[in-house]
Write a protein that binds this DNA or RNA. Structure first.
Length: 423
RNA sequence: GGUGAAGUGGGUGAGUGGCUGAAACCACCGGUUUGCUAAACCGACGUACUCUAAUCGGGUACCGCGGGUUCGAAUCCCGCCUUCACCGCCA
């Protein structure tokens, strides 16, 4: 959620930014200005009434002490009138405030200047292309779902039996590969200075709201009605919320956190050939990196995080490219996002495996995550990125590294897997 | 799940109807003293909204959360949440 103060001072920038996003409901912006004005008027008026009431109450106390009962009684009537007026105003103020907030919730983050305009993923900019040649496997190459059957790596039908579609069961060396990747990613993050956390996998409504999953991504999350809790779609949610309602000191920056969690996504309505195998599943594992940073440094940090994810791809010896998302494809809460795509050689497709974003103050406004800047408090910036998401990385590893003898395991993973060939 | 106790500022903790946005102590910050450190002393020390040209100054709200009583609530009443202790169940 953008700050209302930001609206007051940056009207033109907001309108320009929303155009880059191809945002349709521009009239909401004017409505926000209108309600803001009404709200402030009501606030001032109410404060004045309350001030009068407080003053009178004090005087009534004094009158009683001075044994001037009658005068005190007369003043009580005055207070009663004020109270009546006050409660009407208070009601109006509450309504206006929540209407205003509802509107603010509907406005996405303003894109960074470097974000290209565009309406869909077609318009994303290739920020860094793959410089080598893409692997060509020839006719006999198998997509990862066939390789999975051949080597008993994971089983989707078994997942259907236990749960339903989109819940793969990893087995044997496949399970081991999964664990190897998680450990490798966590170790790399630790080496890069991230503090490891193991967060809860279910979160409450306040938490989901603060990082922006609610209200706009309601349908994306699994919801446990009995306890009013949501299964996390990403570790970003619980990890960033560790710092909800916090005031940091400048020397606390940067806060660097990492965590491994399973992620649960309903992915309602997305079925078809392009979601076969591990391309899109309801439960997958991911190591997330999160940073909380000073506003002046957050874009340097974003590039540092992009470099970290790049190094992971390189160590895994996977062909990848980096996209700068266009306005139309940018997530609701993000100001700038770089997507990482791995080339999956048998499918001959690019698969998204990481998304690295700067949210600027969009999350911290809801999180009330601030830092001390001289006498004032200011909102910090939050950033996060997948480092990395597992299911699709496994898909790419299987496809790209297939040989007649089995799947070659990248060198860097071998100490984690304990084997060099998955067969 | 049951029973009991408790939730006050960064921390400890006082405060049972007005003089309490909140004592005192500790921590933090600024200063005096000092060869340096320490000690001692002095001062400042919550957040949000709002008025204002203003990070000067004023107003309002906040003592777990939400309601209520009252001219007036941290203080009284009701509901909820959380924590702790004991019991039950359990990886």
């Amino acid at each position: 959620m953008l700050e209302i103060g930001f609206f007051r001072e940056n009207r033109d920038r907001i309108i320009a930014g929303l155009k880059v996003r191809n945002f349709k409901e521009m009239d909401l912006v004017d409505e926000i200005f209108r309600l803001d004005e009404i709200r402030r008027g009501a606030q001032t008026e109410l404060d004045n009434i309350l001030s009068d009431r407080n003053r009178l109450s004090k005087e009534i106390g004094d009158k009683y002490k001075a044994e001037q009962r009658e005068e005190a009684e007369a003043m009580k009537a005055e207070v009663a009138t004020l109270k009546e007026k006050g409660s009407v105003l208070e009601e109006a103020l509450k309504t206006t405030t929540s209407d205003l907030e509802d509107l603010l919730y509907k406005i996405p983050n303003i894109p960074n200047e470097s974000v290209p305009a565009g309406t869909s993923e077609e318009d994303n900019e290739v920020f860094r292309a793959w410089e080598g040649t893409l692997p060509e496997l020839g006719e006999s190459a198998l997509p990862h779902w066939d390789l999975a059957k051949k080597y008993e790596i994971f089983d989707l039908e078994l997942g259907v039996k236990i749960t339903g579609a989109g819940f793969p069961v990893f087995q044997g060396k496949g399970a081991r590969l999964q664990r190897a990747l998680i450990n490798f990613f966590l170790d790399e993050a630790s080496r890069a200075g991230y503090r490891e956390v193991v967060p809860p996998l279910l979160v409450n409504e306040d938490t989901a709201r603060a990082t922006g999953q609610l209200p706009d991504k309601e349908g994306q999350m699994y919801y446990v009605e009995k306890d009013d809790l949501y299964l996390i779609p990403t570790a970003e949610v619980p990890i960033t919320n560790i710092y909800r309602d916090t005031i940091l000191k400048e020397e606390d920056f940067p806060v660097k956190l990492t965590g491994y969690t399973p992620c649960f996504r309903r992915e309602a309505g997305s079925y078809g050939a392009h979601v076969r195998g591990l391309n899109r599943v309801h439960q997958f594992d991911k190591v997330e990196i999160v940073q909380i940073q000073h506003p002046d440094k957050s874009y340097d940090t974003l590039h540092e995080m992009v470099a970290h994810v790049s190094s992971l791809m390189e160590k895994l010896e996977l062909p990848y490219r980096i996209l700068r998302l266009c306005g139309g494809d940018l997530g609701f809460t993000s100001a700038l996002t770089f997507d990482f795509e791995v080339y999956s050689a048998a499918q001959q497709r690019w698969l998204e495996v990481s998304s690295v974003s700067n949210f600027e103050t969009f999350q911290t406004n809801r999180l009330k995550l601030r830092f001390r800047d001289g006498k004032n408090t200011r909102l910090a910036h939050t950033l996060n990125g997948s480092a990395l998401a597992l299911a699709r990385i496994i898909a790419a590893l299987l496809e790209n590294n297939q040989t007649p003898e089995g799947i070659k395991i990248p060198k860097v993973l071998q100490t984690y897997t304990g084997f060099e060939l998955l067969n």
